[in-house]
């Protein structure tokens, strides 16, 4: 079992990042007593949850050799959509949630459709959707934040179950489902195949376009979950929310060992990548480092992780 576990870690090429994560946590635990408290860990989990959800989505996309820059805008659109239907004493909770998710699904499917039908690179298509999405969010909200949301809606981002913040529960569920999709389903295997060698995947009889439609749609759906969570947590539908979220999500995937050239990557890696980003920004807060420096540190970590990864690959 132990042997199997280590070989699995080596296999997914994130041994280094996992180790780095543990070491950083240990250092923090010793340097600031506040770090290893239950409340701080719950806090980190809650903060990480949205970025992790988006990162799971974009991991699927990057594994197929694509990219999705519209995540942040999808967060805003779906958040505004959900908020519009979440005022107290209007609709039951299921309505705003369902509408938010449907919005993410639709934009994701739109990305997938344009990418597979037009052959325009995903970078450009989703760059366009990013701008369109931001515009839609402003149109839907008239450019103003949508507040006065129901208590039940606000529970999604702010509530607890048995002391565990609800966003953490969603995060864990999403992780389990995404891991299962990637590792245990045919769709997951086909994602690796498409990203690893698209012509060969096509020649093997795989419906490459179907696979791509799926990944962008799933990515849209996860962005919607993120958008609903965020809206609920800040108890407002913000048309300007989520700007730059796509870059944090992509960073988490890359730190976690997903190759931007496609064909490799794991959900465990992405989760660790997102946690690492969360832990570092949390600890820099605890250590009273200003947010300006935090950005420099974060950038250095992204580059460092990829450099380590490529050095590891050369050795083997």
């Amino acid at each position: 079992m132990g042997n199997k576990l280590t070989s699995r870690f080596r296999d997914i090429g994130q041994y280094g990042i996992f180790l780095a994560f543990v070491i950083i946590c240990l250092i923090l635990a010793f340097s600031t007593p506040k770090f290893f408290t239950v409340s701080n860990l719950m806090n980190i989990g809650t903060q990480v949850s949205i970025n992790a959800l988006l990162a799971f989505g974009v991991t699927f996309v990057i594994i197929t050799g694509g990219i999705d820059l519209s995540l942040g805008s999808m967060v805003a659109v779906t958040g505004v959509l959900a908020a519009s239907f979440a005022h107290p004493d209007t609709y039951p909770l299921i309505v705003p949630v369902f509408i938010g998710l449907a919005g993410g699904l639709a934009i994701g499917a739109f990305n997938g459709l344009v990418i597979t039908k037009s052959k325009v690179p995903p970078f450009i298509v989703t760059l366009g959707t990013m701008t369109i999405g931001r515009g839609l969010a402003l149109i839907l909200s008239n450019g103003r934040p949508i507040s006065n949301l129901s208590d039940s809606f606000n529970f999604i981002g702010g509530g607890n179950i048995l002391g565990i913040p609800f966003p953490i529960i969603i995060l864990v569920l999403a992780f389990l489902i995404c891991s299962a999709i990637l590792n245990k389903t045919i769709l997951g295997r086909y994602m690796y195949a498409v990203g690893g060698n698209e012509p060969a995947a096509r020649a093997s009889g795989i419906r490459v376009n179907h696979v791509k439609m799926w990944v962008y749609t799933i990515c849209g759906l996860l962005s919607a979950v993120g958008g609903i969570l965020l809206t609920s947590r800040i108890t407002t539908g913000q048309p300007n929310a989520g700007a730059g979220f796509e870059l944090d999500a992509i960073a988490a995937a890359i730190i976690g060992g997903t190759s931007t050239s496609g064909g490799t990557g794991t959900m465990t890696g992405t989760l660790i990548g997102a946690l690492l980003i969360g832990v570092i920004s949390n600890s820099l807060d605890l250590l009273n480092v200003t947010s300006y420096y935090q950005q420099v540190v974060m950038g250095a970590i992204i580059i460092g992780a990829v450099v380590l990864d490529s050095m590891g690959k050369e050795k083997s």
């Binding site: 299962a180 245990k184 389903t185 045919i186 769709l187 295997r189 086909y190 690796y192 195949a193 990203g195 690893g196 060698n197 012509p199 060969a200 995947a201 020649a203 093997s204 009889g205 795989i206 064909g263 490799t264």
Partner: peptide
């Protein structure tokens, strides 16, 4: 057009017949 370099021998061998080695959507 032949194989997917990132995948293992097993994963390449079953790529064109994966639907025969599954239960529902799961492999």
């Amino acid at each position: 057009l032949g194989f997917i370099p990132q995948l293992s021998v097993k994963q390449n061998l079953t790529l064109a017949s994966l639907t025969e080695h599954c239960r529902g959507i799961f492999i």
